[in-house]
């Protein structure tokens, strides 16, 4: 990110937080955002953004699987035969996803019920495969971990932004685990109680997820014009 240029003196031996490595963390937030620029991991980003709570759980799951997958594949990068690397990567990812799924089922069965098949679909979430192919296979575990964290964060902020818009306009409230629903408007304002305000139910339906992401892309690209496509 151009705005985050620092004047730190670069040490001779590359430390874990050198300028280059810091770029690995910050780039995916904007310039090479996995969702809006690299077009990876769209499926889950759209399907589970009805509620902020689900989006947070999904982001944490992806963060865990990405760090695990990137570090493991990066450690094995010299012994994986090139021809079968996709299957090896899928097996590593699938094992991590099974861990996530079992933990979710054990500790929050209702969330696991709501996410339904989308926990399993983390396996084919292209953001994970994409980063393994593009980064972990050619780099040491340290930078691979930073790359995983950066990309998972870039994924997470888009997910949270979409979920926030959809939940606030779609249900007029945000539900937190343990706290329950937090409403923003007084009860009397709602149509059902004789008021004037009605929740926009369209926001909860699938098409608005796509349009919300489209608008986020629009805003991001008009602020960062280097990302604009030719046609």
């Amino acid at each position: 990110m151009s705005t985050e240029t620092t004047t730190a003196v670069e040490p001779k031996r590359e430390s874990l937080f050198s300028k280059k490595n810091r770029k690995l963390l910050t780039d995916p937030l904007d310039d090479s955002n996995p969702i809006t620029v690299q077009v990876l991991g769209i499926c889950s980003a759209l399907a589970i953004t009805v509620q902020v709570q689900q989006a947070v759980i999904m982001s944490l799951a992806v963060l865990f699987v990405m760090i695990g997958g990137n570090v493991i594949v990066s450690m094995m990068r010299n012994i994986i035969p090139d021809r079968i690397r996709i299957i090896v990567q899928l097996v590593v990812i699938a094992s991590l996803v099974i861990i996530v799924d079992e933990v979710l089922k054990a500790y929050s069965p209702d969330i696991s019920e709501k996410l339904s098949v989308f926990v399993g679909l983390i396996i084919t979430n292209c953001i994970i495969m994409g980063r393994l192919e593009a980064f972990a296979l050619g780099n040491k575990p340290g930078p691979a971990m930073l790359d995983a964290v950066g990309n998972a964060m870039g994924y997470a902020w888009i997910l949270l932004a979409v979920a926030l818009v959809r939940e606030v306009f779609g249900s007029g409230a945000i539900s937190f685990p343990g706290v329950g629903q937090v409403k923003f408007l007084p009860e009397g304002w709602f149509m059902a109680n004789g008021g004037f305000y009605e929740n926009n139910n369209l926001m909860i339906l699938p098409p608005m997820a796509l349009i919300t992401v489209g608008i986020i892309i629009w805003i991001q690209r008009s602020r960062n014009r280097s990302l604009i496509e030719e046609n």
């Binding site: 489209g214 892309i217 629009w218 805003i219 991001q220 014009r225 496509e229």
Partner: peptide
């Protein structure tokens, strides 16, 4: 609009 071209639209 230019920022919408490609992916956005």
């Amino acid at each position: 609009p230019a920022p919408l071209k490609g992916l956005g639209i």
